[in-house]
C-alpha cells in the first residue's frame, strides 16, 4: 500500500515536471502561432512597404544540370539561402526565375540563361511577416517540392513536435487539475462550458 502510494506520488511529480518543462519548451512556438493567428485575423503586417535591395552579377552556368539542382547551384553561387517557392522558366526570353522565401525576406533571382547574368532582388519584409510565414510553413501546397531547404524541414519538425507536446501538456494538465480536489467542481463546470460553446459554435457554423 505504501509502495503504491510512493509510486503514485512519484508519477504525479514526473507528470508535473514534464508539464512544466515541456510546456516551457513549446511556449515560444505557441507565442509565434498565437500572435500570427491574431495578425491573420486582422490582416496585420501586410501594409508595410518592403525594403528592396537589387544587385546584378554574372556567373558560370553549367549545362548538365536543370530544375531544382540548377536552382540550388545558382543560389549557392549568388549567396542566397531559403526555401525555393517554385521554379519558372520563360523559354522565349531564355529566363529562369527562382523565388526564394525565408522568414523576414523574399528574394527573386532572375537568371538570363543566354548571357549568364543574374538579377537578385531582396525584399526585406520584416519581423511581422516572418511570423506569418512561419505560421504557414511548410503548409499543404506543393507537397513534393516543399521542404527543399533544411531549415523548412527543421521548422516542420519543430511545429509537429509543438502539437504533440501540446497534446501531452493538455492531458497532463487535465490530470493535474483532477488531482486537485479543491478545483475539481469549478473545473468541471468550466470544462463543460467550454465544450458546450465549442459544440454550439460548430453546429451553428457548419
Amino acid at each position: 500500500m505504501i509502495n503504491l502510494r510512493i509510486s503514485i506520488s512519484k508519477l504525479h511529480q514526473w507528470i508535473s515536471e514534464l508539464h512544466l518543462y515541456l510546456g516551457f519548451f513549446i511556449s515560444p512556438f505557441i507565442l509565434v502561432y498565437a500572435i500570427s493567428t491574431i495578425m491573420f485575423d486582422h490582416k496585420w503586417g501586410t501594409g508595410s512597404e518592403p525594403k528592396i535591395v537589387k544587385e546584378k552579377v554574372s556567373i558560370e552556368i553549367p549545362k548538365d544540370i536543370d530544375g531544382l539542382e540548377l536552382a540550388k547551384y545558382i543560389m549557392r553561387e549568388v549567396n542566397v539561402s531559403g526555401e525555393i517557392e517554385f521554379l519558372a522558366k520563360n523559354l522565349k526570353q531564355n529566363q529562369f526565375v527562382i523565388p526564394v522565401m525565408k522568414p523576414g525576406q523574399r528574394t527573386i533571382i532572375s537568371v538570363n540563361l543566354g548571357d549568364n547574368s543574374v538579377e537578385i532582388e531582396r525584399l526585406h519584409i520584416g519581423f511581422l511577416n516572418a511570423l506569418l510565414y512561419l505560421h504557414k510553413s511548410p503548409g499543404p501546397h506543393l507537397a513534393g517540392f516543399r521542404g527543399n531547404w533544411f531549415y523548412t524541414r527543421f521548422w516542420k519538425w519543430l511545429s509537429d513536435s509543438t502539437v504533440y507536446l501540446l497534446i501531452f501538456v493538455s492531458i497532463s494538465g487535465i490530470y493535474m487539475w483532477y488531482m486537485l480536489k479543491s478545483e475539481r467542481k469549478i473545473g468541471f463546470i468550466v470544462l463543460g462550458l467550454g465544450c458546450i460553446v465549442f459544440i454550439l459554435v460548430m453546429f451553428a457554423i457548419i
Binding site: G173, L180, G187, V190, L191, L193, G194, F198
Partner: peptide
Amino acid sequence: IYIGLYLLLFL
C-alpha cells in the same frame, strides 16, 4: 487551470 480547461477543445 480554468482557461486551459475552457479552451481545451478549441486548442
